[in-house]
Each structure stands twice: as structure tokens, then as C-alpha cells.
Amino acid sequence: MQGSRLALNADPNGPFHGPLAHAYACAVHIQVANEAAWNSPGGCSCCTPEQKREGLREDWGIESPDDWMQQAEALIGGDSNAPAATLLELRMVASQSIGRPIDAGLWRDAIARVCEKGGMDDAVYQRLIDLAGTILDYEKRFTADGLLPPGGIVTATKAWDLGRGANMARWGVQCGYTDMQTSQWFAMRASEQALRYYTTWWDFSAGYILGRCLHFDQGAFSHWYTTPLEVHHLMMTHPHSPWLNLPFRG
């Protein structure tokens, strides 16, 4: 991205090819924003192990190896935004049923049918409609900023969890909460999950950014959006980017 303040750094001793490199490439949003090597097996270089442990305590409530493992499992195996996941899946299913993309009106109708069938009250319906509207607003901005192609949509927000999960795996090593073998096993599980939900790095990145924005940004298009957008453009243009040199599906 022209004028980017960010740089793509790599660890010469880290992986550049293969499943582990793919796993670390799923976590580049955080690593690049932290000015850390994207393929470093041991976490980030922006802080000491003691500082990282303090950060995980403050931001995640992680204070022990057991806490770390539970959080890594939750990120890789769970979904931090179930309503958004449900709405995006509903849109895809509705689109597949008619053989073409659905517009906002048809998505609203599909939400109404699901709510009626599930016996949900008007308050739940309105919250889902509001969330769908927020998603559409972000997708419109994503298209304007080159994050999505014209007519493109976000298929899932699971990348938000998986990118953080792959990094949580490395932070476990940095904090001394796990060994390298276990860390890499968790990271590659995140990579395997990514292959279930996405087909390209472009799709994965859009899912990550939408998930992050729904969690933090709340429609403000603040740094919670602009920083990962900057990372996205860097990764899509830098000649040494793993997203350009590693196939998403090998």
C-alpha cells in the first residue's frame, strides 16, 4: 500500500513453505501490525516474555498454562460472534437456493423466516436486522477500499478467531506456557480450520477484518479498521508476501 507505515519482516530461521508457514501466514495481521516477523515460531519481538505474560493477563485473563490452552482451544474450535456467523451462513444458503446472490431485501426476508420458525421475538429479529445492516455497511466500505471486489461479500468471520488462535499458539511459547511442538500443533490446527471456511487469502483477510470490526469498531471505521486494511494491502502487494508466494490451498 503506497505510503504504508508498516513493513513485512521475516525470520530467516522460520518456515517459508509448507503447512507451518501457511499457519503463520494466517496470523500476519497481528504480527505485521506489531512489527514482528510473520513466520517467527516464538511469538513477537515487540516485548519480553514477562511483558507478554502481563499483556495476556490484562487482555485475555490468561495467567497459567491451563488458561492459555483453554483460550487457544476456544479460538480455534469456537466462534466468538455466533450471530454474525449465523447471518452470513443464512445469506449463503439463501443465495445457493436461488442460484444467485441475494440483495438486502431477500436477506431480510430470510432472517424474518428464520426468526418466525424459531419462535424468536421482535427484539431478536431487530438485533439481527441491525447486525445485517452493519455487515452490509462494512462490505460497501470494503469494496470502496479494494478489500472486496465489486459485488463481493464476506463469507465468514471465523478468520478473526483463527488468526488470533495461530498467534496465541506462538505466544504460549513466548510466555513459557507451552513447548514448541504443542504450539505448532495448535497453529496448524488453525490453518486446517481456515481451509474449511475460505478459498483464498483475500477471502480470509476480509473475514478477519470484518470479525475484528464487529468486535471493536462498531461502524466507526477507526484504527480498528484502517490498520488491518493497511496490512491487507501490504500483503497483497509486497513481493515477498506469503499471501502471494504460498497458495491458500496447496
Rank of each mutant, 00 (worst) to 15 (best):
M168W: 02
P150Y: 10
D11E: 13
D130N: 13
G78E: 10
V231D: 06
R164A: 02
C115D: 14
L128K: 01
M188L: 10
S80I: 06
C213A: 04
L88G: 01
D79H: 13
F16I: 08
P228A: 11
R113S: 12
A220P: 10
R212M: 01
M1H: 11
G152Q: 07
L128P: 05
T143F: 06
C213R: 00
T200V: 04
A220H: 12
P149Q: 13
P228R: 04
G105P: 11
V93P: 01
D161H: 00
P41C: 14
Q96D: 12
L106K: 10
L6D: 07
Q70Y: 08
G105S: 12
S205C: 12
V154Y: 05
Y198T: 06
G14I: 11
M92N: 12
S40V: 05
P101S: 13
L244F: 08
T200P: 11
L234P: 03
T157R: 00
L162C: 05
N34H: 06
M235V: 05
A23Q: 01
M236V: 03
H223A: 15
R212S: 05
D109F: 09
P19A: 15
G78T: 03
R127V: 11
A194L: 04
H233E: 14
E230V: 08
A159C: 06
A159W: 00
S80E: 11
Y24F: 13
W202Q: 15
W202R: 14
R113M: 13
Q218P: 03
L234H: 09
W202S: 15
A84N: 02
W243T: 04
L234C: 05
W185I: 10
L229E: 14
F142W: 07
G165Y: 00
